[in-house]
Simulated assay, not measured.
Amino acid sequence: MTTTDLAPWPQLTGNEPCRAPGADPEDWTGTTLKQRANGQKACLSGCPEAVREQCLAWALDHPTRAGSAIWAGTTLSDRRRLRAERRDAAAA
């Protein structure tokens, strides 16, 4: 039997753009392309790299819970592509 360790919830510092005072939750969970682009851009420019890595790992390992929100600057379709690439690399 094989077990897979899933990434734990990211260790947030409180300095991430998604947690900043006045941050609009719709920038991270909204359904319009503009909201997604705004959230993605803000995350990539202001989120510490270590937190982005943890955030992305969590979102990749927990697709149902991550939903369509922005995680580490990635959209749902970005994460689907990354999971497929990871599966392909593991199968090779």
Rank of each mutant, 00 (worst) to 15 (best):
E49M: 06
C43P: 00
T74R: 11
E26N: 14
C43D: 05
L6P: 03
T74S: 11
D78C: 06
T29P: 00
P10Q: 12
L60Q: 08
T4F: 12
C43A: 09
A50C: 02
Q11T: 12
E26M: 12
T31N: 14
L76T: 02
R79F: 03
C43N: 09
A23V: 03
V51I: 12
S68I: 01
L12I: 03
A23P: 03
E49I: 07
G67R: 01
W58F: 15
T2G: 09
Q54Y: 06
P10K: 07
N38R: 15
T32N: 13
K41A: 15
L56S: 14
A42L: 11
R87H: 11
N15T: 13
T13K: 11
Q40H: 06
L6N: 10
C55T: 08
P17Y: 05
Q40F: 00
L6Q: 12
T64Y: 07
L56E: 14
G30Q: 04
G39F: 01
E53C: 11
T32G: 14
G46V: 04
G67F: 03
W58N: 13
A23C: 05
A59S: 15
A92P: 02
A92C: 04
R87Y: 03
D61T: 05
S77T: 05
P17L: 07
K41L: 12
A57H: 03
A69L: 04
C18V: 09
A57F: 06
D61C: 09
A50M: 03
L76M: 11
T74L: 11
T31Q: 14
C18T: 07
A72V: 01
G22I: 03
R80S: 14
S77D: 10
C43E: 01
A23R: 10
R87T: 11
I70W: 08
V51G: 11
V51L: 05
D88M: 08
E49Q: 09
Q54E: 15
A59G: 06
P63G: 07
P8K: 06
G22P: 02
A66D: 01
E26Y: 12
P63E: 10
A37F: 02
G22C: 07
R19V: 08
T29F: 09
D78T: 00
A7V: 03
T2A: 14
A72P: 00
P21S: 14
R52V: 06
R83D: 09
P25V: 04
I70H: 00
W58C: 14
D61P: 01
A59N: 04
A72M: 02
W28D: 14
E53F: 00
G14D: 05
L60K: 11
T2S: 10
E26L: 13
C55D: 11
A66C: 04
T29D: 09
C43T: 07
A69I: 04
K34A: 15
H62A: 10
G14K: 04
A66Q: 00
D88A: 15
L56P: 01
P25Y: 07
A91N: 06
R81V: 09
G46F: 02
P48M: 04
D24G: 10
P17K: 08
G39T: 04
C47R: 01
P8S: 14
A84Y: 02
